[in-house]
Amino acid sequence: MAKILRIHPDNPQDNVINEVVTVLKNGGLIIYPSDTVYALGCNIFDIRAMEKLAQLKKIKLEKAHFSIICNDLSHLSNFTKPIDTAVFRFLKSKIPGPFTFILEANKSLPLAYKGNKTVGIRVPDHAITQLIVEKLGHPIASTSIKDDDEVLEYSTDPELIAEKYDSFVDLVIDSGYGDNMASTVVDLTSGEPELIRQGKGEL
């Protein structure tokens, strides 16, 4: 049964975030808010947690392309090939914000990402998400929570989300209603921004 933590979206308390970080360090799955939709997340370096996340999404881990959630660009060189100054400036102008940026992957990727030629990097503009990554000391793997409803693509009510995923995750963060529009996806592998999916972020 998942534990529900109610956390203020603008002023998250350190001790409560520490509880979330402990769950991640122990290989647990969490549901957390972002500047777009609610998402599933886990420790990017825990292969078993990554496998559980893939099972929950009903895909094989080697075919999963989970986003890498960072709190700034300091971890970029851990996962991506060197980027030129123009691309870096473009990234700096858009983060934190509702964007996922596709970049060329390097060979130092965590085990679950081995073989991937590209990675999706995301820096949400959300205090809870940023503090989780900061206190964990490294990014988390993430995937948006989709809804079965034909009209509403993404679930926005954390209580209903918690009810649905109660037996599949270890912890649900409730910070109020989420958005129902996902991030804008931008491919930067060519050096020029290419819009892949229009979401909340405006280019």
Results as ranks from 00 to 15, higher is better:
Lys57His: 04
Glu104Trp: 12
Val119Ile: 15
Ile68Val: 04
Asp148Trp: 08
Gln130Lys: 15
Phe79Ala: 01
Asn43Ile: 02
Ile83Glu: 04
His138Phe: 13
Ser74Tyr: 09
Phe88Ser: 09
Lys117Ala: 04
Arg89Tyr: 08
Leu131Met: 15
Phe99Leu: 05
Lys92Thr: 12
Ile140Arg: 00
Glu134Ile: 03
Val119Phe: 02
Ser77Asn: 14
Leu53Gln: 03
Val133Lys: 11
Leu152Trp: 08
Met50Gln: 15
Phe101Glu: 03
Phe101Arg: 03
Phe88Val: 11
Glu134Tyr: 10
Ala112Lys: 08
Lys63Pro: 09
Ile44Leu: 14
Ser142Gln: 06
Thr156Met: 13
Thr85Met: 11
Thr118His: 12
Ile121Trp: 00
Asp46Cys: 11
Val119Glu: 02
Asp125Lys: 13
Val151Gln: 15
Arg48Phe: 01
Val133Phe: 10
Ser67Leu: 05
Asp84Met: 13
Thr129Gly: 11
Phe79Gly: 00
Leu109Glu: 03
Leu56Ala: 09
Gln55Asp: 11
His65Gln: 14
Gln130His: 10
Asp46Leu: 09
Thr143Asn: 12
Lys60Gln: 12
Ile140Gly: 06
Glu104Phe: 10
Ser74Asn: 09
Leu53Gly: 02
Ser74Phe: 08
Ile132Ala: 02
Leu109Lys: 12
Ile145Met: 10
Thr129Trp: 00
Gln55Pro: 01
Asn116Cys: 09
Glu62Met: 05
Ile128His: 04
Val151Lys: 15
Gly115Lys: 06
Ile102Gly: 04
Ala54Leu: 10
Lys92Ala: 03
Ser74Gln: 12
Lys60Cys: 08
Ile83Met: 05
Gly97Ile: 07
Gly137Met: 09
Lys63Val: 06
Lys81Glu: 14
Asn71Lys: 14
Lys81Tyr: 06
Lys57Arg: 14
Ala105Pro: 03
Asp125Arg: 13
Lys114Arg: 12
Ile59Gly: 04
Glu150Val: 06
Leu131Thr: 13
Leu103Pro: 01
Glu51Trp: 07
Ile145Gly: 11
Gly137Val: 05
Glu150Gln: 09
Lys92Gly: 04
Ala86Tyr: 12
Phe101Thr: 10
Cys70Ala: 10
Arg89Asn: 14
Phe90Ala: 03
Ile132Arg: 05
Asp147Gln: 01
Val133Tyr: 11
Lys57Thr: 04
Asp147Asn: 12
Leu111Glu: 13
Phe45Pro: 01
Ser108Lys: 14
Glu62Gly: 01
Asp72Ile: 07
Phe88Lys: 15
Phe99Ala: 01
Lys114Gln: 11
Asp84Lys: 13
Ile59Ser: 11
Lys63Glu: 14
Asp125Leu: 03
Thr85Glu: 15
Lys52Glu: 02
Ile69Tyr: 01
Thr143Met: 08
Gly120Asp: 05
Phe79Ser: 00
Asp125His: 13
Ala105Cys: 04
Met50Ile: 12
Thr80Arg: 07
Met50Thr: 13
Asn116Met: 11
Leu131Cys: 06
Tyr154Ser: 06
Gln55Gly: 05
Leu111Ala: 05
Ser108Met: 08
Ser155His: 08
Lys92Ser: 13
Asn71Leu: 01
Gly137Trp: 03
Ile95Lys: 08
Ala127Asp: 10
Tyr154Pro: 07
Met50Val: 13
Phe79Asn: 01
Lys117Arg: 15
Glu62Asp: 13
Lys107Glu: 15
His126Asn: 15
Asn71Cys: 06
Ser74Gly: 05
Glu51Lys: 14
Ser74Met: 10
Arg89Trp: 05
Ile132Pro: 01
Pro82Phe: 02
Thr143His: 07
Ser67Lys: 07
Lys57Trp: 01
Gly97Lys: 11
Ser93Tyr: 00
